[in-house]
Simulated assay, not measured.
Amino acid sequence: MRYMYCYDISNAKRLRTIAKVLKQKGIRIQRSFFICDFDYVKAIELLNEIKDIMNVHKDSIFMYGTCDACQSKVSSIGDGAFQVLEDFRII
């Protein structure tokens, strides 16, 4: 399943750290918006990893799951294009 993570982080150091974690796990769509393909358990593990970095009183992160039917309804306007994650294998 595809999960979308978007965040609002008030501290530059925490912001860079969280962006780095998300960049390792998925694709950056916009500055604070990433998509990742995981099963639910991995998606929650990533959310918990980010929770350990962020300040829960000053920062926020949202995780949205999207089903196949929802993904086919995505529209975009402007320069950015919605990224399609393709299955791959490491050999």
Rank of each mutant, 00 (worst) to 15 (best):
20 K>S: 07
64 Y>P: 00
57 H>D: 14
51 K>A: 12
20 K>V: 03
72 S>A: 15
29 I>S: 05
69 A>E: 05
67 C>F: 13
6 C>F: 04
79 D>I: 13
22 L>A: 07
11 N>V: 15
70 C>E: 14
66 T>R: 07
72 S>W: 08
29 I>F: 11
88 F>Y: 11
53 I>G: 12
73 K>L: 14
33 F>L: 07
26 G>Y: 11
37 D>C: 00
4 M>Q: 05
28 R>C: 12
27 I>T: 02
62 F>L: 04
16 R>T: 05
6 C>I: 01
79 D>K: 08
70 C>Y: 15
68 D>K: 13
43 A>C: 04
16 R>F: 01
74 V>G: 08
53 I>Q: 03
5 Y>L: 05
77 I>F: 14
57 H>N: 14
13 K>L: 12
14 R>H: 13
41 V>S: 12
32 S>A: 11
73 K>R: 09
31 R>D: 10
17 T>Q: 06
16 R>S: 04
86 E>T: 11
74 V>Y: 06
59 D>Y: 08
17 T>F: 00
53 I>K: 04
44 I>H: 07
87 D>M: 01
11 N>W: 09
51 K>Y: 15
74 V>I: 15
30 Q>S: 05
37 D>W: 01
45 E>K: 15
85 L>G: 11
65 G>T: 06
80 G>C: 12
9 I>A: 07
21 V>Y: 02
57 H>G: 13
37 D>Q: 01
78 G>C: 04
82 F>K: 04
15 L>P: 05
19 A>R: 08
23 K>T: 09
81 A>W: 11
51 K>S: 11
7 Y>W: 00
41 V>H: 14
55 N>S: 14
70 C>W: 13
12 A>N: 08
52 D>A: 14
30 Q>H: 08
49 E>I: 15
84 V>G: 09
75 S>P: 02
86 E>C: 08
23 K>Q: 10
14 R>T: 08
15 L>D: 07
69 A>L: 05
7 Y>S: 07
80 G>P: 03
55 N>V: 09
23 K>R: 10
73 K>Q: 12
4 M>C: 11
60 S>C: 10
16 R>E: 08
53 I>L: 13
45 E>Y: 14
47 L>A: 00
85 L>E: 12
28 R>Y: 01
34 F>V: 06
43 A>V: 06
79 D>Y: 13
7 Y>K: 05
61 I>S: 03
30 Q>N: 04
40 Y>Q: 12
59 D>W: 04
48 N>R: 11
11 N>M: 02
75 S>L: 10
35 I>N: 05
61 I>H: 08
75 S>K: 14
47 L>T: 09
84 V>T: 15
57 H>S: 11
